[in-house]
């Protein structure tokens, strides 16, 4: 088991290197980071200094190696688009803001996806099943921003027109420290609900499919033939098996959620990783872009590993050597 984990971690290193190199190259060649300086009158000398400071005159592979060797020591260089603050600090700060949405959203997603998936599988072709199926297809086919904007319109405009109150904030993040508990909650609700709805839609489909397969299996028939109550048949013998394939999907989703949702964060003006990545790209801030990419890749890789390990815990037929 331990050897397996070490081997898995080692094997992800080349993956990360290749991935980050590709992103680094693409970002570096996609535009001139100095183009914005050209409009300001900074003079030849300042130009040279910046080129020197950021090593912009070096070939891309060399720049990549330089960047990577300091990045693995936690130094991702300054972020010019953020007043040259250390990239690492900015990324960590924004990662925390993203986690404020990701963790509660994940929690709600897991609970509702399991419940809806199990119910609609057990009551296949019932009204509830059709309702859940309809909701899922809606959630899968509508883009995220539709949900986000809809929630903003409902709670930001209509609700105020009808009742004269705005129960939730539709833009920006408020913390306990800056605004107190109530405002903190009011600013977090809508972006969390957006993520919740959109991801639950697809996740409950997976859960339903996994549960349906399990319900029709022989060992469920054996469990019923034992005289077990229906609830125990479904929750002990059924769900326990249906969760196995879903753990992988969950782990990947949690990794992605923690990596930040570009769309949701943009709609709700949320200072998270997703928006930071967008800023980095639009402002041609290579250090910032790379910093976010690095963190997101690490998250995805780590949660994939976690998924594999959980798989082994849940399924006794799998042994890691």
């Amino acid at each position: 088991m331990f050897a397996y984990v070490v081997r898995r971690i080692l094997s992800t290193i080349p993956l990360l290197l290749v991935g980050t190199f590709i992103v680094f190259t693409l970002t570096a060649i996609s535009g001139d980071p100095l183009s914005r300086l050209a409009t300001a009158d900074v003079g030849e000398e300042a130009y040279e200094r910046i080129i020197e400071l950021y090593g912009l005159d070096q070939p891309i592979p060399i720049r990549y190696v330089n960047w990577m060797s300091s990045a693995i020591q936690g130094d991702m260089g300054p972020a010019p688009s953020q007043g040259s603050q250390p990239t690492f600090n900015i990324v960590m700060d924004r990662a925390g803001n993203t986690a404020r949405l990701a963790i509660p959203a994940f929690f709600f997603i897991a609970i509702t996806a399991i419940t809806l998936g199990v119910y609609s599988a057990v009551k296949q072709y019932s009204k509830l099943d059709y309702f859940v199926t309809g909701f899922s297809f809606l959630g899968i086919s509508l883009p995220t921003f539709v949900f986000g904007l809809l929630l903003q319109v409902i709670f930001g405009l209509w609700f105020f027109d009808w009742f004269g109150v705005r129960p939730f904030y539709v833009l920006g993040m408020r913390t306990v420290a800056s605004h107190g508990w109530l405002d903190m909650v009011r600013s977090h609700v809508l972006p969390i609900v957006t993520l919740w709805l959109v991801i639950t839609a697809s996740e409950s489909r997976f859960q339903r499919a996994a549960m349906l397969e399990v319900i029709n299996s022989d060992y469920i028939r054996t469990a019923r033939a034992k005289g077990l109550p229906r609830r125990k048949v479904i929750l002990k013998h059924g769900l326990r098996n249906a969760l196995i394939p879903l753990v992988t999907i969950w782990a990947i989703d949690l990794g992605l959620l923690l990596g930040g949702s570009v769309v949701t964060e943009t709609i709700f003006a949320w200072p998270g990783l997703g928006r930071l990545l967008l800023d980095g790209i639009f402002q041609q801030d290579l250090n910032l872009t790379m910093g976010v990419i690095m963190v997101v890749s690490l998250l995805v890789v780590a949660f994939n590993l976690l998924a594999d390990l959980l798989y082994g815990v849940l399924d006794p037929r799998i042994r890691y050597e």
């Binding site: 033939a225 196995i244 849940l314």
Partner: peptide
């Protein structure tokens, strides 16, 4: 007692 013992027992218990 069922026909296929390979699938009649729950694999995770």
């Amino acid at each position: 007692i069922f026909q296929d013992p390979m699938t009649a027992l729950n694999p995770v218990f």
